[in-house]
Structures are given as structure tokens and as C-alpha cells.
């Protein structure tokens, strides 16, 4: 990099003043942003342990007023439902992420190969689907009538396996790996798949961590496909859908004419919403440190490659 010519040689290698200023700015700004992120979440947790009466008027508080665990009781009233929901979601996320990650990275690598003549064509073929979709009815007919996937977990697992966005992202990460690795593999007589599997994949760790995280999140947060394809015949449904039902039932009934037939009694609206947020977020946030490991690891070993 020719930019080194611009560098002033007067400063020391370590602890130059700009580094210190920058660190100060970083700490201040990041800390402020983090407070903005954590405070509302804290208020949600506190409110989820309050009684409905207490928060109805005064809104969110920093500490629970009139401590109550009623909304958690409501959520876990049928624990087998909750446990079932967790198991379904975790299984879907684990299987889907593993399969999806493999296909995405393989495709991303192939599409980044400069010597692959069809890469632009295939990329366009994939990208096009992110712009145009058939709409709800045709997609529903495909899933339910052509593929016969109603009440089948595959209806959730399959459509979320990959997305044009994740493939583009992966392709972009692969780009950072020097082409020489592929070249050296070729010289050693390795096939394309062998090169990908043995040489490329190991240096893609941060990318795999990122895209794996995104995949896992999309499975974790999924409720839309569940609402379309899993009817009440399915005993255990994905977590977010289960929770979504709990909180939306009240809301959608209150504002609709359907309410004329239904009597809703004593459902703690607001605190229940808070509790579901806590229940839904807790486990996945524990996953994040594992993902982070790869970001840090990548930095220190990075120099070895190439």
C-alpha cells in the first residue's frame, strides 16, 4: 500500500495520541448507545414483573412496582407447550443453519470464482428473486398444494434455508480471500470442491459465524411461515409464533368486530407483551458470545493465511 508515504514518522508505534482520542470518543459514544439499548430492555424486564394495574397508567418503570409473576405464569401455564416450542425452534434453527450455511458458502465461493463463466448469470438468477415474488396466494398454493407441506415442519425449514441477501454477503466475504489460495490448490491438483472444503472454508470462519448467526436469527424469529402453514393440528409450534399468538390474540380481538362474539377476561395485556419479549430474547442472546469468539479469533490468526 502506497499510503505509507503519507504517514508521519514522528509518532510512536504504540499509543499515538489519535489512538487515545479515538478511544475516548469510542468509549463515550458506544457507552451512550449501549445505555440507549439496555435501558428500554431493562424497563421491559422490570415491567414484566409488575402487575397490570401498576403499569397501565404510569407506563414503564425502572423497578417493578407491585411485583407479580402472573404474566410468566400465563406464559408457562402449559409448560409442555413452551418446552415443545423451544425444542421445535432450536431444532429448526440448528438443522436449518447447518444445511443453509453449507449451501450458502458453497454457492458463495463458486460465484466468487473469477474463472467461473456462469457466475454473473447465476448471481442474477438468484438476486432476481429478492426483487420479485409471486405474492401470497401463489406461494401458498405452491407450499400447500404442489409440495403438500401443510402441517409439516419442512414448510418452515426449507424456505428459510437461504436468501439472496445471505448469498451475496457470503460472496462478498469470500472475495477477501486471496485468489492465490484457489490457485495453489489447483496446482496441487485439488478439485474445485476439495479446494472449497479444505482451503477456503477454514479461512471463512468470521463469515460463517456472521451468516450462521443471521440464519439462526431468522429461524429464531420466524412466525410468518408458521402462521401460514402450521395449523392448530401441529402440537408444538415454533416459539415466536407461539408467543406472537399469545400477545396478538388480545390486540386483534379488541379492535375488531370479531370481538362481539368473544369475551376476553383478565388477560394481562401489557405485562404479558413484556414477558414474551424477555422469554423470546433471553436464550438467543446467550448465543452471541459464541459467535463473537470467531470474530476475535479471526483477527489474531488472520496473518497466517495467504
Amino acid at each position: 500500500m502506497s499510503q505509507s508515504q503519507h504517514v508521519m514518522h514522528t509518532t510512536k508505534i504504540r499509543k499515538d495520541p489519535t489512538q487515545i482520542t479515538m478511544n475516548v470518543i469510542t468509549y463515550v459514544l458506544v457507552t451512550i448507545f449501549c445505555i440507549c439499548c439496555i435501558l428500554p430492555f431493562w424497563m421491559i424486564i422490570a415491567s414484566s414483573f409488575s402487575t397490570e394495574e401498576a403499569i397501565r397508567r404510569s407506563g414503564f418503570t425502572l423497578w417493578p412496582t407491585d411485583v407479580s409473576t402472573y404474566s410468566y405464569y400465563l406464559l408457562f401455564r402449559s409448560p409442555d407447550q413452551m418446552i415443545g416450542a423451544y425444542i421445535v425452534t432450536i431444532s429448526l434453527a440448528a438443522i436449518g443453519t447447518a444445511i443453509g450455511l453449507f449451501i450458502i458458502s458453497m454457492t458463495g465461493y463458486a460465484l466468487q470464482r473469477r474463472d467461473f463463466p456462469f457466475r454473473n448469470g447465476i448471481m442474477f438468477y438468484i438476486y432476481f428473486t429478492s426483487l420479485f415474488s409471486a405474492g401470497l396466494v401463489p406461494f401458498y398454493l405452491l407450499m400447500v398444494q404442489t409440495l403438500n407441506l401443510r402441517d409439516n415442519y419442512l414448510a418452515i425449514l426449507l424456505p428459510l434455508l437461504m436468501s439472496p441477501w445471505l448469498i451475496v454477503l457470503m460472496k462478498n466475504f469470500v472475495k477477501a480471500i486471496p485468489h492465490e489460495i484457489t490457485e495453489s490448490g489447483k496446482i496441487d491438483g485439488a478439485g474445485d470442491f476439495k479446494i472449497f472444503y479444505a482451503l477456503i472454508l477454514p479461512s471463512l470462519k468470521p463469515a460463517l459465524a456472521t451468516i450462521g448467526l443471521f440464519l439462526a436469527l431468522s429461524y429464531w424469529n420466524e412466525w410468518y411461515y408458521s402462521s401460514l402453514f402450521l395449523t392448530t393440528k401441529v402440537e408444538y409450534r415454533p416459539l415466536q409464533f407461539h408467543l406472537y399468538n399469545v400477545i396478538n390474540k388480545v390486540a386483534s380481538l379488541k379492535n375488531s368486530v370479531a370481538g362481539s362474539n368473544v369475551v376476553i377476561t383478565d388477560l394481562p395485556g401489557e405485562t404479558l407483551k413484556m414477558a414474551t419479549a424477555v422469554v423470546a430474547t433471553g436464550p438467543i442472546i446467550l448465543l452471541y458470545p459464541f459467535v463473537q469468539k470467531y470474530f476475535v479469533a479471526g483477527l489474531t490468526v488472520g496473518a497466517v493465511k495467504g
Binding site: 396466494v137 401458498y140 400447500v144 401460514l228 392448530t232 406472537y244 399468538n245 396478538n248 370479531a258
Partner: peptide
Amino acid sequence: EFRWIEWTDWQTQYNLALATQS
């Protein structure tokens, strides 16, 4: 046998069930 249209998004779900019946 029941086929429940749950209250979550019931308008879409109900009309979709009618539109795609087979």
C-alpha cells in the same frame, strides 16, 4: 374436525383458506 383460524392475522388467514381451498 376443526380447522381453526387463529386470531393472529385472522383476516388474512381466513381469506387465504377460502381462496386456496381444495
